[in-house]
């Protein structure tokens, strides 16, 4: 089995995004960029599957600016075998990203696409489901446990009601939830070794993927601020204030 792991370059999850002064977007200058945390979990899972001998090759793919090479190098250092950067200045929306990933999947012939459930920049939570739809294959989203048996995979999914288990036939798309695993730290020697691993750079235009309909993105604004309140000194004061606000009787 070959596994394709999409890696999105996003602003680091510890950073609180700020709207640019003109409201056209989000400040990225000088902001730390990282692998989308859910994609890191997807990659970790792929590496564990390979370590168990259930996969032969892991291909990391990113769609984005040239700087995304940095995140792909990290993915290679973690344990991906090779990487592909589909270079574009445009911030591709999920339906577009799904079409591009479908094309790369076709070229590579991977049976499993293991990816994040959500990119923490657009918070769309769509791309995996859309890829599965366009590919006509099953999806196991929000997965927190994954096993393989006889060409099928069993996924336990984190859903609002609890934990759901489904079985789907390979090839398939799996999207990851936080609890699937804890990604490993990259070690110095691995970073050195990763420099020699192949990273194939391709231009989006040369892929021959037609751009789908898209959402027109308008103004960005900060959310209505919650006026940070105040502190009280005692439980008595707390109870009194809750009564005053009418939330306790």
């Amino acid at each position: 089995m070959k596994i394709l792991v999409p890696i999105k370059r996003t602003i680091d999850y510890n950073i609180k995004a700020k709207v640019t002064r003109d409201g056209s977007g989000v400040v990225t200058d000088g902001v730390k960029m990282s692998i989308n945390p859910f994609d890191e979990i997807a990659l970790e899972e792929a590496i564990r599957i390979k370590e168990r001998g259930e996969a032969e090759e892991i291909i990391a793919v990113s769609i984005g600016v040239s700087g995304a090479q940095q995140q792909l190098r990290t993915a290679l250092a973690m344990g991906a075998d090779r990487a592909i950067l589909v270079e574009t200045e445009e911030a591709t929306q999920p339906l577009h990203a799904a079409r591009i990933l479908l094309k790369i999947r076709e070229e590579e012939g991977t049976d499993l696409v293991l990816m994040g459930k959500q990119a923490i920049d657009d918070d769309a939570n769509q791309t995996g489901q859309m890829l599965a739809a366009l590919w006509g294959r099953p999806q196991a989203t929000f997965t927190s446990k994954l096993t393989f048996e006889d060409g099928w995979l069993k996924a336990t999914r984190e859903v609002d009601a609890g934990l759901e288990t489904i079985a789907v036939e390979l090839p398939a798309v799996v999207t990851t939830d936080l609890r699937l695993n804890e990604p490993r730290f990259v070690k110095m020697p691995d970073i050195m070794k990763a420099k020699r691993k192949p990273l194939d750079q391709r231009k989006l235009e040369e892929l021959g993927v037609e751009a789908p309909a898209k959402l027109e993105v308008g103004t960005h604004e900060p959310p209505p601020e919650r006026k940070g309140g105040h502190k009280v000194e005692s439980v008595d004061e707390l109870v009194a204030e809750l009564k005053e606000r009418g939330v306790l009787s």
């Binding site: 339906l95 859309m130 929000f142 959402l215």
Partner: peptide
């Protein structure tokens, strides 16, 4: 926009060629 809607809607949206508006 629950785990049910988040799982199903994008799959239907892709079949319809529609860029989904989440949340």
């Amino acid at each position: 926009s629950t785990t049910f809607g988040k799982d199903v809607m994008p799959r239907a949206a892709a079949l319809l060629g529609s860029p989904q508006v989440s949340d």
